Simulated assay, not measured.
Amino acid sequence: MTASEFSKTAAALYASTTGFRRQMAVYRPYICPFERVAECVDPGSRVLDVGCGQGMLLALLGVSGRCSEGVGFDSDADAIAVAREMATHYEAQGHPGALRFEHLPVSAAWPEGRFDVVTIVDVMHHVPRDQRPSVLQLAFEALRPGGRLIYKDIGHRPRWRALANNCHDLLVAREWVRYTPITQVRLWAGELGFASSDPQRINRLWYAHDLAVFTKPGPDAVRGPLMARSA
């Protein structure tokens, strides 16, 4: 599906949402490359979305057939209320799969179970710096062997795109962006035993995005320094 198709889908799913939150739902697919994230998710996956916000990513994954069961959590109670309302429209419109949303901070115990995919999209720059490695550790533990962590965050280069990202977050989240370069994220992931593909730089309008896929070793894989160096 294209950004335009995702936007039309969001407009239908968030039809009862009003004001700025509805506008965010309708226009965010033109800013955030959801379609590129979706390409990294195998059809029919069980997905955990960390910092899910209003639940848009899980809904779009479900509509496109990528998600058979989606669980999302976020520390923003208002956003979770919107996500739960959206989920009722999702079900009423006959879309496949089940969506569930929980109000939790990222530092709390994550929803139980093992998932095929964990997504962390535009979240890490909101997490306190000293907690960022532990977020990857929790994602590792939440994945089944062979599962994927799909990581996307705003990019810090070039500087003018980073400035655009900062202005956006000041407007939407009332926060100044505190970047962690994707190279550092890959180092942390490698230390945990993740293998990773080369990160992708995606430019959308005046925004920069870094996208990387990390794979948890399967039952026959050997964790250790070699795996870490290959990440």
Rank of each mutant, 00 (worst) to 15 (best):
T9Y: 09
T9P: 01
T9K: 02
T9N: 14
A10C: 15
A10I: 05
A10S: 14
A11D: 11
A11K: 14
A12R: 11
L13N: 03
L13T: 05
L13R: 12
L13D: 05
L13A: 14
Y14Q: 09
Y14P: 08
A15I: 07
A15V: 15
S16D: 14
S16M: 10
S16I: 09
S16R: 04
S16N: 13
T17L: 11
T17D: 00
T17Q: 05
T17E: 12
T18E: 14
T18P: 11
T18I: 10
T18G: 13
T18Q: 15
T18C: 13
F20M: 02
R21G: 01
R21M: 11
R21A: 10
R21I: 15
R21S: 05
R22A: 08
R22H: 14
R22Y: 13
Q23Y: 11
M24N: 08
M24E: 10
A25R: 01
A25Q: 04
A25L: 09
V26Q: 11
V26E: 07
V26L: 07
Y27S: 13
Y27F: 04
Y27A: 10
Y27V: 08
Y27H: 14
R28K: 04
R28Y: 03
P29T: 10
P29H: 03
P29S: 03
Y30T: 12
Y30Q: 07
Y30E: 08
Y30M: 02
I31P: 05
I31R: 12
C32H: 07
C32A: 13
C32V: 02
C32F: 01
C32Q: 00
C32N: 08
C32G: 00
C32R: 06
P33H: 04
P33S: 12
F34G: 06
F34I: 01
F34D: 01
F34N: 05
F34S: 00
E35I: 05
E35K: 08
E35W: 06
E35D: 09
V37P: 12
V37T: 11
V37E: 13
V37Q: 10
A38M: 06
A38N: 00
E39I: 07
E39W: 08
E39R: 08
E39C: 04
C40A: 13
C40K: 15
C40P: 03
C40D: 10
C40I: 00
C40N: 06
V41I: 07
V41R: 00
D42M: 06
D42A: 07
D42E: 09
D42V: 05
P43F: 05
P43K: 05
P43W: 01
P43L: 08
G44V: 05
G44H: 04
G44T: 13
S45T: 12
S45P: 15
S45W: 06
S45L: 06
R46C: 10
V47I: 07
V47A: 06
V47L: 03
L48I: 04
L48T: 07
L48C: 03
L48R: 00
L48G: 06
L48P: 02
D49W: 09
V50N: 03
G51L: 01
G51M: 02
G51H: 03
